[in-house]
Amino acid sequence: MSLAVASRYSRALAEVVFGPQSKTKPEQVITELEAVIEAMAASPDLVRILRSPAVSLNQKRHLLEKLTAQMGGSEVTANLLKVVSDHGRITILKEIARSFQSVVDERHGVARAEITTAQPIAPEQKTQLEAALGRLSGKQILATYQQDDALIGGAVAKIGSLIYDGSVRGQLATLRRKLVNG
């Protein structure tokens, strides 16, 4: 439910940011939203005030204006925060930012890949892997790497909801299913 709502806000934000009259870059909005999210995570009182029905909408708007001004945020970001706060959706700001990132990636033809390997891999292999994934998805790959010994060997790549499993663990799991099913 919150993902669908966040998607609506993020698409509306993308329409503004990618509009012909927009002077704000999408990456800037993303950075500003991440800063606000960090600030909210660091200050539970701020979240409590923004969620409290006892605090009026004008007071919340004034607080958010001050916050964005202190952070040097753009007008687009400030307006988004006001709208989200007015509609009582400040709690899903993180989902909105993530969804907006996806929309921006999609518009730029970028796919984010989470690559997990059992052992650290060489830069050449990273390049080859990203190139292979890029050809597979048809998009430019922005990869993040992490290591997991449980894979035993090989690698696992996740792009969105798609998972490409080339690990020894995955192959052993396939072997086990075959053994069980005869």
Partner: peptide, 16 residues
């Protein structure tokens, strides 16, 4: 281990 990653890359190429 590097060989396994390389094999994975080749498999991805085959999928494409």
């Amino acid at each position: 281990s590097n060989g396994l990653v390389g094999a994975f890359i080749q498999d991805l190429e085959k999928v494409k």
